[in-house]
Design a protein around this nucleic acid. Structure first.
Lengths: 358, 358
DNA sequence: ATTCAATACTGAAACGTTTTTGTATTGCAG
DNA sequence: CTGCAATACAAAAACGTTTCAGTATTGAAT
């Protein structure tokens, strides 16, 4: 805590004016040449070289603020996200960020923590900072934002925004078909939190898939996530509660991998083996899914692809390009250890009352 | 419904000039009042109220770019991070971000992917964007940056930067002491990747702790992480290799939770049980550590605290405050299921040659 | 000798603020 | 009635660019 050192070597960046003085040319000329605008065609090559050389020599970097203020592009976008977290959000954010940076864009991240007032405030503040557009992740937007916007996993069709969505019908079908093929008939479900962007859509898709597969969804086998955490704990209490009610199911389809991992633990704590007693299917395929014990069968969302597409569409829109309403990406079933053939029906349907039949 | 609205985002924000025209006052007066500068004392209350009311009415928001350009504070910092990822990095980044946003600062995230050229380039680009300082996470900085900088888990003492570091000596001691108390003597170690900021410091601390506990570190029980991934896979191949060489150890101290989780799987795939055959200790206490099966004993780094402190110190430095060289935070041992008493020595020391002694 | 067009630039406005300095008006003392 | 301080504001510069509208110079054509 002792010594406050004098600021280390903080010389002022060289500006257009410095170059102007050095070269004996106006800032206008230098600017046009460095930006290679059409007008630069009128400047002879020799002068252009002189300018380039000087810019190089003094390591000239245009001040982005001034440039943006003047009305040119700010090359900045705002990313709205509930939290920077593990799992889903982080992976999408990473992909978005990588894409944007690769295209020379920088981004602000604003974490609204699902607070409506922040969700109102941040877009305004970002706009004050001249972002050119928004990418919104896992957030139920109420009204359209005042700039080009791409929403990842949003399902409201708001005017002017582009949605990047998973093909949930296909996802649900893949998962349920897999379970049905393994002989599962009594399947428990963990629904997403009410505020999670995918919850409703995903559930509707599951209902449709179940019907098309001739599968009955039992009311008493449905639980819903409640707490807002990025720990697998999110899935633990709800599955414990489910298990207090009944053991009469042979498979569990979780809302996401996080809750599936919590479920794994809850099942184990109740003395059930996965997959021998209960098969578990997750959703997302986060990095650690493959490394659970047992490793998790799951529906993979191509999160990196979704992030990259979101970035791509946004930049395209910013440049005045097309404005698709929705872009759908395909999920993939990844079969691992947590699913196996259903245990025989007799045993399955009677676990609680069958003590004497053992 | 005659909606001939010209796209919702065509709405130009109202500026000082608009207010000026509306109020019949100069922008100078309005600015001083809205910013409540000392000079505003000379403006009568009635005028001030008029101004405030108008600003409210038109929802005036000062343009941050213009303000920053004029020389005031940009209220922006740059965060340098190898990748936005799961685990360590994400948790620290989240904490940093929350702190900064809570103080009215926005931040750019730049992911340098450990490429030297990006690590050179991004600070410059961020500076062009008038960030007021840098927060650097898990990155070995080569030279000091030209602005106030706080490094989380950096260990070079570069001029002018503040390091936030874990007390690695205490961490190593906690882990090894725990294992020694459980009777472990032959302990394997997974060292961090050469480029990971903590690798070297952590290892030195482990050596010191081992010595102070009278523990011998066996060369042949040391492996080092190599690949750069945020999947637990990072730990898998190295532990498989270790197990090809020898089974002659009863505990494993991993570089981080991610590699510990990979190790769990590797051990299992080699037919070893955790913790009965081998105890495993991780590092970091990421969210999923508690939900592994077996749940992971680990050294918790107070990542949220480290992130918040980093933000706090940086803002303090930006405001010209003290410039501490280093701030140390304390780890914590979290005992879970993956550690247990060592299996008896005889068995342990002779696994390979003892086939006939069985 | 004037006009014209091309060449190679320059001047200045503009972006939206903040801030320093200046000034018109008023009230009041002398 | 003059002078002076206080009051309440305004003018303008500045931040670092970009860009539009000029303009000085040259050479050639009329």
């Amino acid at each position: 805590m002792r010594k406050s050192k004098p600021a280390p070597h903080t010389h002022k960046p060289v500006g257009l004016k410095d170059l102007s003085r050095y070269l004996g040319l106006s800032t206008a000329t230098i600017s046009t040449v460095l930006n290679a605008t059409p007008a630069a065609a009128e400047i002879p090559a020799s002068t252009q070289e002189r300018i380039l050389a000087a810019a190089e020599k003094f390591n000239y970097r245009p001040n982005t603020l001034a440039r943006s203020l003047r009305g040119m592009r700010s090359h900045t976008v705002g990313v709205l996200v509930p939290e920077i977290s593990e799992g889903y959000g982080a992976l999408v954010l990473a992909a978005v960020g990588d894409y944007l940076l690769s295209k020379g864009y920088f981004f602000f991240v604003a974490t609204h923590r699902r607070k409506p007032e922040l969700l109102d405030e941040y877009p305004q503040m970002l706009r004050q900072r001249s972002v050119e557009g928004f990418i919104v992740i896992d957030t139920a937007l109420e009204k359209p934002l005042p700039l080009p916007t791409v929403v990842i996993s949003g399902h409201r069709n708001l005017e002017g925004i582009t949605n990047i969505v998973l093909n949930h019908d296909r996802a649900a079908h893949l998962a349920l078909e897999h379970l049905v093929q393994l002989g599962h008939e009594r399947i428990a479900f963990i629904q997403g939190q009410p505020y999670s962007a995918d919850s409703e859509t995903r559930w509707k898709a599951i209902e449709r898939a179940a019907e098309s597969l001739g599968l009955d969804i039992q009311e008493e086998l449905i639980v819903q996530l409640e707490i807002d955490t990025f720990s697998p704990y999110v899935g633990y209490p709800v599955v414990r509660r489910l298990l207090q009610r009944t053991h009469d199911f042979t498979a569990l389809f979780a809302y996401n991998d996080l809750s599936a991992i919590g479920a794994l633990r809850a099942l184990r704590d109740s003395g059930l083996r996965v997959p021998e007693d209960v098969s578990v299917v997750g959703f997302d395929d986060i990095n650690s899914a493959a490394f659970q014990i047992p490793s998790l069968t799951t529906i993979r969302q191509p999160l990196d692809k979704m992030g990259a597409i979101a970035g791509e569409i946004l930049l395209q829109r910013i440049q005045g390009g097309a404005n698709p309403v929705e872009i759908m990406v395909d999920p993939e079933l990844v079969i691992r250890e947590s699913t196996a053939p259903a245990r025989p029906r007799v045993e399955a349907g009677t676990k609680l009352e069958s003590v004497e039949s053992a």
